[in-house]
């Protein structure tokens, strides 16, 4: 499975377009992890627990998108984009979307 945010995969022409696939998760901060982050309110700096949280969420969104692509018989997803929106109550939605395609020569390499 090739995941790319380019329009095409070099050297592997697109045989068939299968439409848009997407995956999303809604995450909220962990109150306990937030405890240590309170200090950061004062001295600033990186909120490592938030970075980890967003990374996990983004991974999960990409995984869900990939599963959807596999389910419809794609071997690559191109033109992948991320979008994030914060909804009230300290929660964020992370969305990954792209175009599922069948490319020549399979997904290896």
């Amino acid at each position: 499975m090739i995941i790319s945010n380019m329009e095409e995969i070099p050297g592997k022409p697109v045989l068939r377009h299968l439409g848009v696939v997407q995956g999303s998760t809604v995450q909220t901060k962990n109150l306990f992890r937030d405890f240590g982050a309170g200090l950061k309110n004062l001295i600033g700096g990186e909120l490592k627990s938030y970075t980890a949280l967003m990374n996990e969420a983004r991974h999960e969104a990409v995984n869900r998108m990939t599963r959807e692509a596999v389910a419809i018989g794609a071997n690559a997803v191109v033109n992948v984009r991320f979008a994030t929106s914060t909804i009230t109550g300290g929660a964020a939605e992370i969305l990954a979307y792209g175009t599922a395609v069948v490319i020549e020569g399979g997904a290896d390499g």
């Binding site: 790319s4 380019m6 070099p10 700096g45 990186e46 990374n55 983004r58 990409v62 991320f82 390499g109």
Partner: peptide, 23 residues
Amino acid sequence: APRDLDLAAPKLVTGSAVISVDY
């Protein structure tokens, strides 16, 4: 992708950082 480059093994890569303000 530039045509004259031999590109292999495409992979989506991401990086992120959350930085907070100080008082």
